[in-house]
Write a protein that binds this DNA or RNA. Sequence first.
DNA 1: AGCGACATGTAAGTGGTTACATGATTTC
DNA 2: GAAATCATGTAACCACTTACATGTCGCT
Lengths: 162, 162
Amino acid sequence: MTELEGAILTLLDMEGPMTAYGVRRAFLDSPSSFWSASAGAIYPALNRMEEAGWVASKDATRGKRPAKALQLTASGKAEISRWAIDTATAIGPGFDPFRLRAPLWMRLEVAERAELKAALESRVLKRIEVIDALDPRHPDALRHALERVQQTTRLEWIRKTL
Amino acid sequence: MTELEGAILTLLDMEGPMTAYGVRRAFLDSPSSFWSASAGAIYPALNRMEEAGWVASKDATRGKRPAKALQLTASGKAEISRWAIDTATAIGPGFDPFRLRAPLWMRLEVAERAELKAALESRVLKRIEVIDALDPRHPDALRHALERVQQTTRLEWIRKTL
DNA sequence: AGCGACATGTAAGTGGTTACATGATTTC
DNA sequence: GAAATCATGTAACCACTTACATGTCGCT
């Protein structure tokens, strides 16, 4: 299972049956989404997972507009449970653009580095403000909270080390 | 420029001229690498970047074994500088497997959740021990330090919230 | 003579990306 | 009646993955 598939199944598990379009909307609207949430990723992923039996679709056509409501199957739930508690992957590096760039920051000239430090600091601060303004009842509230912790940690590092 | 390309150029910038194989070795040996460091990624990436003029190669054949030593060009240095200080991308979400899974952890049954909490905690602790055992003069020492901060933050979150 | 490290790649597959395409429904 | 939204998808492309292929050099 890819990370995108995991994220989609998590959404279906938390938000209940919805259309593929609904899944896409949820990703687009999410202020902490990891992908572009393109149709070219969502629809193939859902079709893959339907073939695998992890999601089932029932017709939800209204009027003349065809629509499929997708929901997790028992097998899908089992799959996602395994995915969720795979601790080795969970604590892995994923990929972190901040960490990737940091070594180069330390080699900037003093002026450039000061400029970058200010830019990074204000950007992180702004991001934290955005997170703080989010509705705590949003289904992704926990992820937002975790991102806030990460950004705060980054902020401290920027101030102390950069 | 992809993140892998950025990481490769960073390595060439810090460690000086080396062969593609050397780049690959560096990624394989790194205890905090983000990719599989497969030849199928490294070699094409380097060829792309040589075509783009970001790296230049000079012959380093010894005996009958052909070898190319790769080094950053001025244009490559300019490119990587731009990449490094692109703050919007730098503080972006990348993709974080921990954050992706967290919402599901909160919905586990008490016993399962306790089990997962213990597993995660010990794994993170072990990882921190591994990081602490690394040579502080390793070229990736800063990245290791940043990962340590992140893992420590995760540990606190696990203990306090999970 | 054989093994492991050095050195460079290719082939097939996968899962993302952007951009395009089509039509129904709702809202102003 | 025009525009935004709902709804589903395809086409071309790209950068990664695993696995395979080839040959050299140094050491025991």
